[in-house]
Simulated scan of single mutants.
Amino acid sequence: MTDEEIVVVLEGYKHEIASLKQRMDSVGKIVDAVHTLALEMARQTEEIKHMNSSIRQLTDDVTELKAKPGRQWEMLIGALIGAVVSAAASMLF
């Protein structure tokens, strides 16, 4: 090979290397973006877990609040029945 042919081959290699560097830069940016997305997904997963816990607690609280009026009515009816039975018993005696 002559010096001129070697220079031509080396120039070709230079262009290929430059092209590969550009591709690697692009791939590096993509990898950084994927890494950022993965971190964001991890944060969002933790937030969702916290939200699920809060929703469970709210559901329990709402269930308890729904049950309160029923218990109050039961207590009222029990008191009325007790009063009626007491009044009837006092009339008999």
Rank of each mutant, 00 (worst) to 15 (best):
D3Y: 10
L76M: 14
I81H: 00
Q22F: 14
M24I: 03
K49P: 01
G12Y: 02
V34H: 12
R56D: 14
I30C: 13
M1H: 13
M24A: 09
E46C: 04
E4Q: 04
E11C: 05
R71I: 02
A67H: 05
V7D: 14
N52F: 01
E40K: 12
G78R: 05
I30V: 13
F93E: 11
F93G: 12
K68N: 05
L80T: 05
A87H: 12
D3W: 12
S54W: 09
K68T: 03
R71F: 06
N52T: 07
H15R: 15
S53W: 01
K49E: 09
A88W: 07
T59A: 10
L37Y: 00
S26E: 14
S53N: 01
I81P: 04
L20V: 05
L65F: 12
M91W: 15
Q57L: 13
A83F: 02
V84I: 13
L20A: 05
L58H: 11
I55F: 08
D32S: 15
A89Q: 08
G70M: 10
M1W: 13
K68V: 04
R71K: 08
A67V: 01
H50L: 14
A67G: 05
T63L: 09
H15G: 15
E5G: 06
V27C: 00
D61N: 05
E4F: 04
V62P: 06
D61F: 00
E40M: 06
K49F: 00
A89L: 07
T59D: 09
G28C: 01
G70R: 10
D60E: 14
I48S: 06
T36H: 13
M24T: 10
A89N: 00
K49D: 01
D25W: 04
K14Q: 10
V34Y: 09
G82M: 05
A18F: 04
